[in-house]
Simulated scan of single mutants.
Amino acid sequence: MNKANVLVLYYSQHGITKALAESIMLGAEKAGADVCLRTVPRVSATIEAVEDSVPESGAPYVTHEDLIQCHALALGSPTHFGNMAAAMKHFLDTTSSLWLKGALIDKPAGVFTSSSSLHGGQESTLLSMMLPLLHHGMAIIGVPYAEPGLHQTSDGGTPYGPSALSRDGKSTLSNDEKSIAIAFGKRLAQHAIKSRNNS
C-alpha cells in the first residue's frame, strides 16, 4: 500500500481553527496517512507578509513545495465577513505557478473554518475556499450525512467541511466539532490513499 501525505494548511488567530486542524490531522493519521501541518504568516493592511520567515512557535509556514509533495490538502481559515482571512487568500494568490503546471490536479482536498457567531458565514467561507481549489483541478471532499455528529451538533459542523463556533472566545472544540473534524481527516486520507494505490 502506498503511503499518502496529507497537508493540513490553516490560519488561526485565537486557536480554534488550529484545534480543528489538529483534529483533522489526528483523523488522517488514524487512517494511516503521514500528515504535514502548516500555517501562513499574518499580513499587513497592505497585504504583505509581516512575520519572520520562521514562526516563533507552532506549525512552520507552508511552501509551494509542500503543496507539490502532498497527496491531499485540508485548507482552513477563520471566517472574516463570510470569506477566508486575508492571510490565507494572500498565500493562495501566490500559487499561479502551480496552476500553470497543473501540480494539484486530481488531488483530494477539503476545507474547514470557524466563526465567533452561529450564523457568522461559515458555509459561505467554506464554499469560497473551495473556489481556488477547483481552479487548481482538485477533487473536493466534504462531510457526508452518514457522520452522526452532523445530525446532533448545536455548534459547528457542515456537509461542506468541518467548522467550529468560538462563542464567548472559546478555543476548544465541542465533542461534535471534534468528531466531525476527525472523521473528515480520516475520509480525506482514505481518498488520498485510494488515489495513490490506483495510480
Rank of each mutant, 00 (worst) to 15 (best):
N2R: 14
K3P: 11
N5W: 01
Y11P: 07
I16M: 14
A19F: 09
L20P: 04
D34H: 11
V35R: 08
C36D: 14
V40M: 02
I47Q: 12
E48G: 00
E51V: 12
V54E: 11
Y61K: 07
T63L: 04
L67E: 01
I68H: 10
Q69D: 14
A74I: 03
L75R: 04
S77V: 01
P78D: 12
T79F: 00
F81P: 02
N83E: 15
A86C: 07
L92W: 04
D93G: 14
S96W: 08
L98A: 03
A103Q: 03
D106G: 02
A109P: 06
V111G: 04
T113C: 14
S114D: 10
G121A: 09
Q122W: 03
S124P: 08
L127R: 13
M129W: 03
L134W: 07
L134R: 15
L134P: 01
L134H: 10
L134K: 04
H135I: 08
H135V: 06
M138L: 14
I140R: 00
G149P: 07
G149I: 04
H151G: 12
T153L: 03
G156D: 10
T158K: 12
P159V: 12
A164M: 10
L165R: 05
K178G: 02
I182Y: 00
A183Q: 06
F184S: 08
G185I: 11
A189W: 08
H191K: 07
A192R: 06
N197I: 05
